[in-house]
């Protein structure tokens, strides 16, 4: 309570002092519309970013004009981009002011922020309509789907197709396979990608030591047995893949794959083990294997989290895209 009272008082005093310092009128009825229409007419030029926004912000707030009122004014301006820049700078200043303790502005700040995030929905519409293939996907995930629709979904769909094709191939292989699979000579551990692994305790009375542990790898009717001591390289690689966060490049791969995977969570969640097995085996290219293992191992752990992360990241990226889009129009 003490704080709020003191901030209120200090805020008004500060504003008046600022206005007087910059030569702005300190009255209650500021003609903000007029002021915005002629930004260059103010004493401080636009290039002087530190000074001019402050003045604009002060005038906007001291009048208690709702932030929404700024929008129609801005739209009417012929130089729309110039106004946006002003608004952006003003919002920054407002946030600074708010942080200094002006309680009266706290209610406006979020609104201002949200308007910055949501600005120019027209751009969104044109972008989404240009990518008509992914409309269904975009509908699911509101505004931030634009980037995903543009960049990631096509990748995902091609991956899906590839996976499905390879899964189908594997199915047919297994169906055609005799139940009694002959023991193949032990090959590299990469051959065991896609096998589920179990540790079994075996008792065999023909062995010198009756009781011993073995690793059993199973993929449907295909069984492979390895000694427990020889820790498979494949298994180590899986772990390495799952801990790729530390590596910057790895992180990039992970994030990308997470996105793909997260959009497929509904399918992966049903039978994560089997999906993992079938998907990760299809890669004849070892590099593909690596990336896919990473991709598939992640979603099981990140069922809940990555969606939020993704949306947050994509929002950030979207804002940068809009800025780029905005440059040519000016």
């Amino acid at each position: 309570m003490l704080c709020s009272i003191s901030t209120g008082k200090s805020g008004s005093n500060w504003l008046e002092r600022l206005r007087s310092n910059k030569g702005f009128p300190s009255g209650d009825n500021l003609d903000l519309g007029n002021f915005l229409s002629n930004p260059n007419s103010s004493d401080s030029p636009i290039t002087n970013a530190s000074d001019s926004p402050n003045s604009n912000a002060d005038t906007a707030q001291s009048n208690d004009i709702p932030v929404e009122n700024l929008k129609p004014v801005a739209r009417e301006r012929p130089s729309e981009t110039g106004d946006k820049e002003w608004l952006g700078i003003m919002s920054n200043v407002l946030s600074e002011l708010f942080n200094m303790g002006d309680r009266s502005q706290s209610s406006r700040f979020p609104a201002k922020k949200s308007s910055r995030k949501q600005r120019n929905p027209k751009i969104c519409i044109t972008q989404s309509s240009s990518n008509g293939v992914n409309m269904a996907e975009e509908e699911r995930s509101s505004s931030d789907c634009v980037r995903r629709g543009e960049n990631i979904l096509p990748v995902k769909s091609t991956l899906n197709l590839g996976e499905k094709r390879k899964e189908a191939k594997e199915e047919s292989d297994n169906n055609g396979e005799a139940r009694d699979v002959e023991e193949e000579p032990e090959k590299g551990e990469s051959e065991l990608v896609g096998f589920s692994k179990s540790e079994v305790t075996v008792i065999d009375t023909s062995c010198g030591v009756w009781k011993f542990d073995k690793l059993v790898f199973r993929r449907k009717n295909i069984w492979k047995v390895r000694d427990k001591k020889g820790k498979s390289r494949n298994f180590g690689r899986k772990r390495k893949g799952s801990t790729c966060d530390g590596n910057a490049d790895g992180n990039a791969v992970c994030n990308k794959k997470q996105k793909i995977a997260s959009s497929e969570l509904s399918t992966l969640n049903d039978a994560s083990g089997r999906e993992y097995a079938s998907i990760s085996t299809h890669g004849s290219n070892p590099e593909d294997d690596k990336s896919e293992q990473v991709c598939i191992e992640r979603p099981s752990d990140l069922n809940q989290v990555p969606r939020k992360r993704l949306s947050r990241k994509s929002r950030k990226r979207r804002s940068s895209v809009i800025l780029i889009k905005a440059i040519p129009t000016s």
Binding site: R179, D180, S198, V200, T201, V202, I203, D204, T205, S206, V216, R218, N221, W223
Partner: peptide, 11 residues
Amino acid sequence: DIVTGWPGGMT
């Protein structure tokens, strides 16, 4: 002679 411990899904 006996052998046990292997999964029952084998042939």
